[in-house]
Design a protein around this nucleic acid. Structure first.
Lengths: 205, 205
DNA sequence: GTCTATAAGCCGATAGAC
DNA sequence: GTCTATCGGCTTATAGAC
């Protein structure tokens, strides 16, 4: 538990941020380690000091992204509001987080889609399995609130698992088309996220 | 316009089907031309007889996928039913098509996400632009019906462009998790597609 | 901690035989 | 039309200097 030197932590984070953006912009395989290094004004050597392989960087980005997602959504899952209000708050928090850390979430979706792509070593497979498990627990947060809402009679009586999955993948899909504009404030993003979430939660009627 | 020999056509189609599946399973860049060739019991030579480059295969898959999507959805856009009924019929037709030709649509979404990835030659850039244009006209089909529904008062009064985009990306996102089971009949897929579309169109209430 | 230099493997693409 | 053989370029990862 000895705290790492500050410079070490900072280099690590700069690499993660740069890698997330590069992986989003060009795809994992198309991004070279040299690209990532160059974009933070360093060379390959630095990267390989902090990470054992390119795939390990991807896994670290995945982990950091899930960490933030849970941090933002958890609190709303447990407060005292009604299921409908909680589900909306969770959805907006999740979407705002996606829109704010686009690169990280783009990487997560890439990773989920292309699990069998690269050569995954046993150690990495373990980490990947842990992350996928974390992801399905994240989905369970939403499913639980949906089940409450159904029991209570305020939600439609359909398969909660299908509802949770449809809801989450609809929200996640926003990262396919949303790109922040330079002049867009945090408030504007929150406002847009609210509109989109209402469309998803209430449909078109 | 001289019709090509039958064998030529058939090889071309087998390559497209195999490539779509391989690109879905392993990603575009991770798939080698040797993989595609081997999966149809042929060698690289055959592929390069029919296609000039790997990217050209991707573009051909994209093209074929859009062709089918339009074929299935167009008829429902123009019939005499109400906007709500037409929008549902279009959505179900689109989703069933995605679920049936998963590989093709997975490739389309990959291509859309990673436009700037590979080195795109001018001739290919032209083809890609044409396909993107075709894609936005496909979206316009949905937007037009939504606008009708709003004007008529049966849909919610929100931004039609945002509604169409949210609807389509929600439907498209299904290809991230849906995988057909061997024992799943066409009727069961249609039934599931209907459920999902209703969730997306009407929300959770 | 970070850099330079290089090894080692892989893959897209082509040439030419059949 | 399809196959075999091969080139050339690129990229991950490592070794070792500073």
């Amino acid at each position: 538990m000895a705290p790492e030197p500050e410079r070490t932590q900072k280099s690590r984070e700069r690499i993660l941020d740069a890698a997330a953006d590069a992986f989003m912009l060009h795809g994992f395989r198309e991004t070279t380690i040299d690209d990532v290094a160059q974009s933070i004004g360093a060379t390959k050597g630095l990267i390989y000091y902090h990470f054992r392989s390119k795939l390990d960087i991807l896994l670290a980005v995945y982990e950091r992204g899930m960490e933030r997602a849970e941090e933002k959504v958890q609190p709303h899952a447990q407060d005292s509001a009604s299921p409908a209000e909680r589900l909306r708050a969770m959805s907006v928090a999740h979407l705002v987080n996606i829109m704010t850390f686009l690169g990280y979430h783009h990487v997560i979706h890439q990773a989920v889609r292309e699990q069998n792509s690269a050569a995954v070593k046993p150690r990495q497979r373990e980490a990947l399995d842990r992350l996928n498990e974390q992801r399905s627990q994240f989905e369970a947060l939403f499913r639980a609130v949906i089940e409450e809402g159904i029991a209570e009679g305020s939600f439609r009586d359909a398969d909660p698992a299908l509802m949770a999955r449809t809801l989450l993948s609809s929200i996640n899909a926003v990262d396919n088309w949303f790109r922040p504009r330079a002049d867009q404030s945090a408030e504007e993003i929150e406002e847009l996220a609210g509109q989109i979430v209402d469309l998803i939660l209430h449909g078109i009627r």
